[in-house]
Write a protein that binds this DNA or RNA. Sequence first.
DNA 1: TTGAAAGCGTTACCAA
DNA 2: TTGGTAACGCTTTCAA
Lengths: 355, 355
Amino acid sequence: MSDNLPGDPKGRPGIKAVAALAGVGIASVSRVLSGQPGSSPQLTQRVLEAARTLGYAPNALAQGLRRRATRSIGFVGSDITNPLIASIVRGAESVLTVAGFSVLLTNSGGVPSVDAERIEVLMHRQVDGLIVLPTLEDDPATLLALRNTKCPVVLIDRAFPADIPAHYVLSDHYQGMGDAARALLDKGHRRIGLVVGRDVRPTRERVRAMEDAYDRLGLPRDLIVHRGTLSSDHGEVAIEEMLADDDPPTAIVLGGNQLLEGALQAIHRRGLQLGRDLSLVSCDDVPLCRFHQPPIATVMRDAEQLGARAAQLVLTHIETPGTPESVSLPTWFESRASCGAPSGTSVQRRADKVR
Amino acid sequence: MSDNLPGDPKGRPGIKAVAALAGVGIASVSRVLSGQPGSSPQLTQRVLEAARTLGYAPNALAQGLRRRATRSIGFVGSDITNPLIASIVRGAESVLTVAGFSVLLTNSGGVPSVDAERIEVLMHRQVDGLIVLPTLEDDPATLLALRNTKCPVVLIDRAFPADIPAHYVLSDHYQGMGDAARALLDKGHRRIGLVVGRDVRPTRERVRAMEDAYDRLGLPRDLIVHRGTLSSDHGEVAIEEMLADDDPPTAIVLGGNQLLEGALQAIHRRGLQLGRDLSLVSCDDVPLCRFHQPPIATVMRDAEQLGARAAQLVLTHIETPGTPESVSLPTWFESRASCGAPSGTSVQRRADKVR
DNA sequence: TTGAAAGCGTTACCAA
DNA sequence: TTGGTAACGCTTTCAA
């Protein structure tokens, strides 16, 4: 049995092979290669040489099993295809890679029960930490899965019950949306449409920011809140419905980057010119915002930073578990030509255009 | 020692705990839970019940170590933030998830040596397969890393030396680019600029398609090929340089979606109207292509399908290793308003515009 | 049909 | 300073 030193599954050398070649004990190899002190220079030398000539690298599986730590973290998001989420993943991945961690990526498709399932799979894979962008804040399966995690968890842009053991990285949507609201009200808009997603923290913050903006100016809350999913299709429907209103809003704010494409379709179809016939604000900058004619005013944030901070947080608490921590990152409003002064109702505006 | 049944690192029950609770042997638990036949209904029942009450799920690390298979695959791409790559990952991930595989995602940042390093890390993590979008085709480190892989590897959109043991999923860039070229030549363009990246298969196919299109019409190859990286910055520089030429092209083709933003910046800055003053074709549809005014004509492909086929290929060869396989997927040209007839030199065009 | 025991490749204790 | 050895949690012979 000891003659045959197959090492690894597909014929890679194992620690035994290195020990044999170096003529030392297996334990010494482990010690040297994991950088533990207390090995003579000679032994160290021989082990290193043997390892190099064999092209040896430790089997991360066995290490993980023994060390009870895999240096991997799981990421659960709805869809990597959403540029916002891609940026978050990118930010997290670059921090984690530097720290020697790998990322297990999963997409839940925005289905709460799948969130829960993915969390469980990742736990079985013994990830050392978890970064999750949960779809909802009150899905029972997700809550259960989150309660059963035995590793640090960082939740992005969500607020969960206090008994959920997790850390948070939050965007300060209130600030950016408040600035956007004030900018619109300043320009004279009084009836504003706000398209939002499901009832999660960003939605609540955005609605609150809008309402407070009205309140602060002593204006009646002439706000139309349209709730649904944050999809392109919903963006289109929302615009259609709002503009079909007897008293349509003169400005519309989209609470999610995915809404924009559908919204623009509806707007173009109606032949409306943004900034003149209708003012539009979107959330989360995408190339389309900047290159659209006119450019789309946007509530901005640094998505990569969001992911990077989440990664730092999870690493910190893997290192030394601590009490729940919460990080808040800024959002800000960037005004662009899609925002102008109101110009009567959209019915009048359409009449203008046709004439 | 046998009284204490801690099971898993952070206090999750192990197989021993289940065996103890069910009052059966540990081997029986394994057999029942991994669905092997040959267990009495009673035993099966008791094991299942015990597992459920303990909330037991096997430790994937230990399973992987023992089975010599982790049901995980590694993905190496340049940057998940590129919507093309995000779509490829998404396509792969959905196929793999259904098959019970997890994805280890890494970004190389488009640095060849990092490609190689990531491949090695993933091998040490004992992935069962690898999907790679290599930066270059002749980087020595990457070639070495690829040769040392002991698992099925699928390379996307690249052509490597025949001695590299890998499977391929390729886009038929020749077809789509050929159609684009013919469309431009048909409209009367004779001097066309082509911006491409480094010397990899897509670049070569695109250049060849353009050249062949000229040849087939018996036209001289009045083609300006601009080579560089596929970044937004390079897109901007490329446009600037081409339009600054004494005899600027009347149409420009961008061989990569990342080029578009920079290119549009340069074009807008010059006040050129696409489709009239200059014709533009991009590669790989992004929202910006469709919503730009005018919309940008594009050589399209199904990126998710690219990832999905890669995943299928890798799964097939994990199941039953076979000889190298190669899959080709279509690209096609979608003409949009950014393509019009040529209108003199850009100098004249600018004069027109100013007048 | 069932279970004891031998590993999988590594780490870490402990004795030498 | 070194190396044997017992785990880590699981699967898989092999005997019973």
